[in-house]
Nucleic acid binder design. Structure first.
Length: 445
RNA sequence: UCCUCAGUAGCUCAACGGUAGAGCAUUCGGCUGUUAACCGAAGGGUUGUAGGUUCGAAUCCUACCUGAGGAGCCA
């Protein structure tokens, strides 16, 4: 590629656009892609994109060799190029700095017979999703993925600095964690049916008995026929699990995690939130303590607001929105009916009809972002639950072992990364919070 | 799986029973401060597919395909 023919000048530093402010009035070299181009006769304004930001360049015909000026003037959207010039403070330019071009080379020119498909105008969802590999270059998508990165870093930092050990759980699993209707079957292993994990939960419990406090963080898979703005078939979930923890401790840790993540995004991703036009005043109100209520209370509140819900039923999406509409921070609901919760939840010793499970429901209609609770530590109770749920005991022998060899009260939760990112970014749909979303009718690119 | 809505130029849309149109993108021309730049011109169409109704269908009817939103289920 002609890139190699580009003469390096030793007094010119190659910088990224995000570093421009530190190089005011200095000659620099930028490597990037043409985001947009405006031209006006003998002056052209190429806007360069390099993954760290946007830089408006100014190329004046009179100051440049003919060939350089003409190549910039005829450059097409998303062509890759190298530009050399002097950084100058310029209030008129987006970003506050501008580059006075002294030299430029197009590395690969996008041919006009196949122009870059995503223009600076409006596009539909279907078209953009078909071009997801290119759509990621757009400002809003770029910003959302950077917020995602910040949240993932924040999750790791939080657990790593609070005594948790990362102990990842397998993706191929032989049995269901919860139901059996939402599993992806993998037809490969000779001796038995294997499925893609829908939760690392059961393994996490074993890990917690080995390490005390653990978390796993990876993709999970749900074969649900869900077609809504809150669902992906492949999504990322972080699941901490703690030995010697009860329901209150689970709630405390989850709340502390949420607060730390919101703070971190607000501090480190201001620019991205601005690009996304996120109303950050709503996020600034997310502080401890979060409102807490029992399932019983939640049902009463919902009924008073006109919901059809009866005690024993699960919340629908409209119920979640109703429940959170009077609050500016996530609502913590606990003690759900035992019947609607997974088999492994500890029941309330005073009220066996309710399980020590907890959900965090995000405000602004973003729904359930965290689900967790205290697990059964009593062998006899767990055996009973397995029977009640018609689960094959043999497959759970190892899980029962955890109650035979030094059982302790323990608990944890799972947090869906994409829903959290959607909430932080104020996005309509979780598909924009993951680089390549996998959904019911979309597996490409 | 069910319910609702939508498929017209590369893209976003208009035309709603009577000759298929605009903006953006692309090409050519003009412009030394543009901010989704602007001005002028050109090329670009089997109206998702298959039937049907009609003198005449992008438009009305039927089936199918594709997509979107929602329900249930869930993070």
């Amino acid at each position: 590629m002609r890139f190699t023919a580009w003469q390096h000048e030793k007094d010119v530093t190659t910088i990224s656009i995000s570093e421009a402010s530190q190089h005011e009035n200095q000659p620099v070299e930028l490597h990037g892609w043409l985001y947009n181009l405006r031209k006006s006769g003998k002056i052209v304004f190429p806007i360069l994109r390099d993954g760290t930001g946007l830089m408006q360049c100014v190329a004046v015909k009179a100051n440049l060799p003919e060939q350089v000026f003409e190549s910039l003037k005829g450059a097409t959207q998303e062509s890759s190029l190298i530009v050399r010039g002097t950084v100058r403070k310029e209030p008129r330019a987006p970003g506050g700095y501008e580059l006075d071009v002294t030299d430029a080379q197009i590395v690969q020119r996008v041919p006009e017979e196949h122009p870059y498909p995503i223009t600076p105008k409006d596009h539909g969802v279907d078209f953009l999703m078909d071009h997801r590999h290119l759509w990621l270059r757009s400002r809003r998508q770029h910003a959302a993925i950077r917020v995602r990165h910040e949240i993932i870093r924040g999750i790791r930092d939080y657990f790593d600095s609070h005594g948790f050990t990362l102990v990842d759980t397998p993706i191929f699993t032989p049995a269901a964690c919860e139901g059996t209707t939402t599993l992806f079957e993998v037809d490969y292993f000779d001796d038995e049916k294997v499925y893609l994990t829908q939760s690392g939960q059961l393994y996490n419990e074993a890990n917690a008995m080995a390490f005390g406090k653990v978390y796993c963080f990876g993709p999970t898979f749900r074969a649900e026929k869900s077609k809504t703005r809150r669902h992906l078939t492949e999504f990322w979930m972080v699941e901490p699990e703690m030995a010697w923890a009860d329901l209150e401790e689970v709630k405390r840790v989850a709340e502390e995690l949420v607060v730390s993540l919101v703070q971190r995004v607000l501090e480190n991703r201001k620019e991205e939130l601005k690009t996304l036009e996120r109303d950050t005043s709503k996020l600034e109100k997310v502080a401890s303590p979060f409102p807490r209520m029992s399932y019983d209370e939640a049902v009463k509140i919902l009924q008073s607001k006109g919901s059809e819900i009866q005690w024993g039923g699960d919340f629908g999406n409209t119920d979640e929105t109703l429940l959170t509409q009077d609050f500016d921070r996530p609502v913590i609901v606990d003690r759900f009916p035992t019947e609607i919760k997974a088999f492994y939840f500890q029941t309330d010793p005073q009220r066996p009809e309710v399980a020590l499970g907890v959900d965090f429901i995000a405000p602004e209609g973003y729904g359930e972002i965290i689900g967790g609770g205290q697990r059964i530590h009593d062998l006899a109770l767990l055996e009973t639950r397995l029977q009640e749920h018609n689960l094959p005991r043999e497959a759970f022998e190892w899980y029962l072992d955890l109650r035979r060899f030094g059982s302790v009260p323990h608990g944890g939760f799972g947090m869906g990364v994409e829903r959290f990112v959607a909430w932080m970014c104020g996005l309509e749909h979780v598909r924009e919070t993951i680089p390549y979303p996998r959904m019911l009718y979309r597996t490409r690119p």
